[in-house]
């Protein structure tokens, strides 16, 4: 169907999704897209992204305070620190895009509170994956699921956006989420071995 229409690099994944034992995302096509309506400016996109990263950091911090296993506590602390770096990165991009000179405190007044990364609430993530909160592996798996979901959301939002600059910003954030996913994969390797 596609081969005769100018598509020259088509790859069919044999075995389909059943054979895919990597990260997955869940939910309908429009999950979380209430946050990205498709009409946002690049600056608006970055405000939403910052809010999502911040929501996730809060979640990790609250979990770090709750769990008993010191190793799990340490993992949650690490995950929270990673989110601080994500937030800094998004804020730098916001300053670059807007040309504004603004403090983080002033910027944070724009934040939108709705969901953590990926368009689901933390409660929805927990219900969905039901992790053992005293298991390092379960916690990293949960974090990887959230990052995969975030990557998916940013990618769908980019597809949905007409403004080319906003699209580029969303693609860039999606690429960063992919890098975060690899980072968590390495953390998992460290814990397993």
């Amino acid at each position: 169907m596609m081969a005769g229409k100018g598509f020259s690099k088509i790859y069919n994944m044999s075995g389909g999704i059943k054979a895919w034992h990597n990260n997955i995302a869940i939910g309908p096509e429009d999950l979380g897209l209430a946050l990205f309506t498709g009409t946002e400016s690049p600056a608006d996109v970055l405000v939403v992204a910052y809010s999502l990263e911040d929501g996730l950091r809060d979640f990790y911090l609250s979990m770090a305070a709750k769990v008993r296993n010191p190793k799990v506590k340490d993992i949650f602390q690490k995950l929270s620190d990673i989110e601080i770096k994500h937030k800094e990165r998004v804020f730098e991009e916001y300053l670059a895009v807007t040309g504004k000179i603004e403090s983080v405190q002033d910027f944070e007044k724009n934040m939108v509170a709705a969901a953590v990364e990926g368009g689901l609430t933390t409660e929805e993530y927990i219900n969905l994956f039901q992790p053992d909160f005293e298991s390092e592996i379960d916690i990293i798996s949960l974090a990887m699921s959230i990052e995969a979901q975030a990557l998916d959301l940013y990618q769908r939002a980019a597809d949905n956006t007409a403004d080319q600059k906003s699209k580029a910003v969303l693609h860039q954030i999606a690429a960063e989420e992919a890098a975060h996913l690899s980072q968590l994969g390495r953390l998992m390797d460290d814990v397993v071995h």
Partner: peptide, 12 residues
Amino acid sequence: EYEASHIPGAKL
């Protein structure tokens, strides 16, 4: 089927 699980970033 997409809703149940898909590769992150996949377009339906």
